[in-house]
Computed example of a mutant assay.
Amino acid sequence: MTTSWSEGPLLGFDTETTGVDVDSDRIVTAALVRRDATSTSITTWLIDPGVPIPAEAAAIHGITTEHAREHGRPPRDALEEIAVELAEAFRTGVPVVAYNASFDLRLLDAELRRHRLPTLPDRLYQAARPVIDPLVLDRAEDRFRRGKRKLVDLCGFYRVIESGSLHSADVDVVATLDVLERILGRFPHLAELDLDTLHEYQVSAHRAWAEGFNAWRAEQGLDGPGAELVWPTREPAGTLW
């Protein structure tokens, strides 16, 4: 009997940040959660981002500028440790699981460039893959379901009980892995795909969703750039330092 990738190991990844601009904002906390059939291990980082943490961001994840400055790691050291762990996972074929993966992976690569460290593609000599994004999978497999699709919404829909307050990176990663497990239970054909096929499926699924979303925005007369067509990563915009 063939063993599915869904049985692990999987490496979950999440960040909490100073804001939502992947090119200019900074990582404040990060978590990596490695899960296999028998165990779950969690590694977390608190980082001094080197810039003030806006009050609205601190209100979400609970980390103030003062707390980060007093207790946070230097960003260059922490970012290197995170990148080493992620690159090793990709290099050995362990899928990285992230909710709205485009945000976290793009922000991480921007941060690595800012601190003149090799990005994930630099370390791997190719694009970072395989990535698994429960948000992309849920949109693709249940396209016509109404309602929001933030992590908290999917936790509610898939009846995942969080182990703590969401918007804490480690709690978010565990919830993301639990949501992925429930998605695979509802759509078991996903677990039967090999990882390369699954990654490409998400690339296509995200583009289809983004094109539809952007067409809707145009119909509504909404301004702004809309959703990016490329998943999960792209080159950063402009200079990062």
Rank of each mutant, 00 (worst) to 15 (best):
F157S: 01
L222D: 13
T233P: 01
T197C: 05
V173G: 01
W216M: 14
V203S: 03
A210R: 07
A218F: 01
S204Q: 13
L180D: 10
W216E: 15
I183L: 13
A191R: 07
E211P: 00
Y158T: 08
G164K: 02
V203C: 14
P232G: 04
E228L: 08
C155R: 07
P225R: 12
R143I: 00
G156M: 00
G147I: 11
A191F: 05
C155V: 09
R186G: 04
R145G: 08
V173H: 06
D133Q: 09
L190C: 04
R149M: 02
L222M: 14
D196P: 00
W231V: 05
G164I: 02
A175Y: 01
F187Q: 09
F213A: 15
D142L: 08
F144E: 12
L135I: 04
E200D: 15
R149L: 08
A210W: 02
C155W: 05
N214L: 06
W216L: 14
A215G: 01
D142V: 03
A227C: 02
R159D: 14
P225A: 13
S168L: 09
L135E: 02
V171M: 04
A191H: 08
R217K: 11
D194G: 08
L177I: 06
D178L: 07
Y158E: 08
L135T: 03
D138P: 01
V171R: 04
L222N: 03
V173D: 03
R149P: 02
H189N: 11
V160E: 00
P232L: 07
V173Q: 00
G226K: 11
R149D: 04
T176H: 05
G224L: 03
G221L: 06
P188F: 05
G164R: 06
I132V: 15
D138F: 05
I161C: 01
A227S: 05
A205K: 06
R149N: 14
C155G: 03
E192L: 13
R143V: 01
A175T: 06
Q220V: 07
E211A: 12
G212F: 02
R146H: 09
Q220R: 14
A191S: 15
L193M: 15
R145D: 10
L195E: 08
W209A: 08
G147K: 07
P225C: 03
R143W: 07
G185A: 11
D133F: 06
G226P: 06
T176D: 05
A227R: 11
G147V: 08
T197K: 09
L151A: 04
V203L: 10
L137V: 11
T176S: 06
S204R: 15
P225I: 04
D153F: 07
L177S: 05
Q202S: 07
L137P: 04
G164Q: 03
A218C: 01
G164N: 05
H189S: 12
G226T: 06
T197S: 13
F187K: 12
R234L: 08
D142I: 07
R159Y: 00
D223A: 15
P232Q: 07
G224Y: 03
L154E: 01
D194S: 04
P188I: 09
A210I: 12
I132K: 04
G147A: 10
S163Y: 00
R143M: 09
K150A: 13
P225D: 14
L166K: 03
L180Q: 11
P232A: 12
E219S: 13
L151I: 10
R145E: 12
P188G: 13
A215E: 14
L180E: 10
L198P: 01
